[in-house]
Computed example of a mutant assay.
Amino acid sequence: MTTQHTPSAAAPVLALLTGALLWGLAWWPLKYFGSAGISGNLMVSVSYGLVAILGLPVLWRQRRQWQRQAGLFLLIAVLGGWANTSLVNALMSGNVVRVMLLFYMAPVWGVLAGRLFLGEHISLHRGAALALALVGAFVLLGGQAAFITPLSPIDMMALSAGLAFALTNVTTRAAHAIPLASKTLVIFLGCTVTATTAALTIGQTLPALPASVWGLIGLFSLTWLALATLATQYGVTHMQAGRASVLLILELVAAVISAMLIGGETLRPQEWIGGALIACAALLEARTPQLLPAR
């Protein structure tokens, strides 16, 4: 008699929390690299491209598995490429707190997309968590002032990154025949293509940076980015898309607190209140039982 290994209920949650922490702090090295003279598109092209190149043999060895869902495989590349490229550009160019707030409309898209495309049930607990997240984001953005302030190109990048990120998670969940390694690596490939195309379109070229900076970019790519992406993909593969999207709101908390402590950004009282509501939403979602898809 043989037993089949399945991940414990805690493993996907721990993986997502690890990914959320790494992504929430990623603005710090990105800001440093930006100050050294590299643009967001080229930063993505180089850092994600390095991992993508090293991962090509793995994608080739697993081709028979991901070819079964080639359409979803390509969709993960497109959506993941847009999400990461847009977010990196927004973080390197804009205010970290505002970018992350707009990006974290993602849980709204994730819950709704999980229901529409995967038939995931929206329970009372999940609905309450979603409501808390929305109220928290509304408060953080300044209440009614959020509807008055016009959206800048950076705002649009952050919003579109959140939407693409949520759809990436839903697609990842649906692509059950594709190995985790392929799901992870194809995102790096999609980011490389997206960012390189954008850089070439607007005529951006690689700057002459010191060798030490290029070394740090390589280290950042092969450790920080790779682990963050792998942890996130593992988590969303083994839990419902709606639950994953709400749990990943903790990335916002990490980004806001670190931007305040490290980046010198300040938080007003309503931003503290909004952040607390979002944290409560994530904790409530973590305690929501897994539900079977609706039929």
Rank of each mutant, 00 (worst) to 15 (best):
R68A: 09
G19Y: 04
G264Q: 12
T85W: 02
T266D: 07
A228F: 00
T266P: 02
L180S: 09
V170G: 07
G127T: 01
T149Q: 15
W66L: 03
A158Q: 10
A83G: 06
G34P: 02
G162M: 08
H176T: 13
P179M: 05
R64P: 07
T205V: 13
L163I: 15
L185C: 06
G274D: 03
A166K: 05
S152Y: 04
L42T: 00
A15V: 13
T266F: 12
A113W: 13
Q4S: 14
V193F: 05
I38P: 00
A195S: 09
I257G: 06
T2M: 11
A145C: 02
G119C: 03
L250T: 15
T288A: 15
L284V: 13
T149I: 15
S182L: 00
P269E: 05
A20S: 15
A26I: 09
W27E: 04
P210S: 03
L140V: 05
L252R: 04
A282L: 10
S47E: 13
G55D: 07
S123G: 10
A9I: 12
Q233V: 15
A286W: 12
L134T: 14
G142H: 05
L209V: 01
G71K: 04
V111K: 06
W109R: 11
I217C: 10
L22G: 05
V46L: 15
E120G: 06
W23F: 14
Y234V: 05
V46N: 00
T196M: 07
A70T: 01
I278A: 12
A244I: 02
S35R: 13
A282S: 15
N89R: 01
P269F: 08
A177W: 05
T172P: 03
T18S: 08
M260P: 00
L206Y: 09
A211E: 11
G264S: 10
K183F: 06
W27T: 13
G162T: 13
Q62A: 11
W224F: 06
G215Y: 03
E120D: 01
L132V: 06
L163K: 02
T192R: 04
L291N: 14
